[in-house]
């Protein structure tokens, strides 16, 4: 149920998907992996939209060179933990929601605990080795993973629904080399916004998702394109689940 303040705060969204839809967002728990460029956009829009619980994780501190794109953090936050800075900003945007901000490095060892109570995984990482940890956790817990990544003017996004779509490893079998990537804040804005829109539609249960579709954004030509992704039967992350009866049933739908 929404209180009167919430009804007023979310009135423009309630016009879109009703109080029932808004209540669904309120019940949703989102895990946001990273409080950098993508994590800033994702967390700000999720907080403003009224996702009831947001857990955001980042192990770094704010640096001056982050501020061109990491809009969660302001000049006065330089030197502070990104997690603390994120919590302050998000609670300022929406005090009606629960924000947990953790200074942790995501690992195979702690991912189960970090995801406890969350029903969505928002990928705002800057490397594929951690993304593969998120991918495996999503498959094991059968919760969606909303992937996004950027470099300069370019970005990509896809939505992984365990049991239904190609997983992240099916689409990207090997991690690309880690480099210091150029980053434009507005590219994070495009891709992070798409990820949040996907999460909203998933929670509400309507609209078409980026299922088995890799969306490609090119800011230089201002164009979007997409290519189809397919499950890889030999995928090292998701093929082990094929023996799972529920998974087989889902895949046959």
């Amino acid at each position: 149920m929404l209180n009167d303040l919430e009804k007023k705060r979310y009135s423009r969204q309630i016009r879109l998907f009703g109080e029932d839809g808004q209540a669904k967002l309120k019940k949703a728990g989102a895990f946001i992996a990273g409080a950098g460029g993508l994590g800033s956009v994702i967390s700000i829009y999720m907080a403003a939209a009224g996702f009831g619980k947001i857990r955001i994780v980042d192990c770094d501190s704010v640096e001056l060179s982050n501020l061109n794109r990491q809009v969660l953090h302001w000049s006065d936050d330089v030197g502070r933990s990104k997690a603390r800075s994120a919590k302050d900003t998000l609670e300022g945007i929406n005090p009606e929601i629960e924000v947990e901000a953790l200074e942790e490095t995501i690992s195979k060892e702690n991912i189960d605990q970090l995801l406890s109570g969350c029903s969505l995984i928002m990928d705002a990482m800057d490397n594929f080795s951690t993304r593969y940890i998120l991918n495996k956790a999503a498959l094991q817990k059968k919760i969606p993973l909303f992937h996004g990544a950027i470099c300069g003017y370019q970005g990509q996004a896809t939505t992984v629904i365990p049991g239904k779509t190609a997983c992240l490893r099916c689409t990207f079998p090997r991690a690309p080399p880690v480099t210091t990537f150029p980053a434009l804040g507005s590219t994070c804005g495009v891709i992070g916004s798409i990820q949040v829109t996907e999460a909203v539609k998933y929670v509400l249960g309507f609209g078409g998702l980026l299922e088995n579709r890799l969306m490609l954004w090119d800011g230089l030509s201002c164009s979007m394109d997409e290519v189809a992704c397919m499950r890889n039967p030999g995928c090292q992350d998701c093929s082990a689940l094929i023996g799972d009866a529920n998974y087989k049933q889902e895949m046959s739908k």
Binding site: G34, G36, G37, L38, G39, D123, A124, M125, D126, N127, F128, G148, A149, I150, C151, Q154, G155, Q156, F172, A175, P176, V178, T179, F181, A183, C188, L214, L216, V227
Partner: peptide
């Protein structure tokens, strides 16, 4: 041919 981007 799509160049994979990895940044966040």
């Amino acid at each position: 041919i799509v160049r994979i981007v990895h940044g966040g």
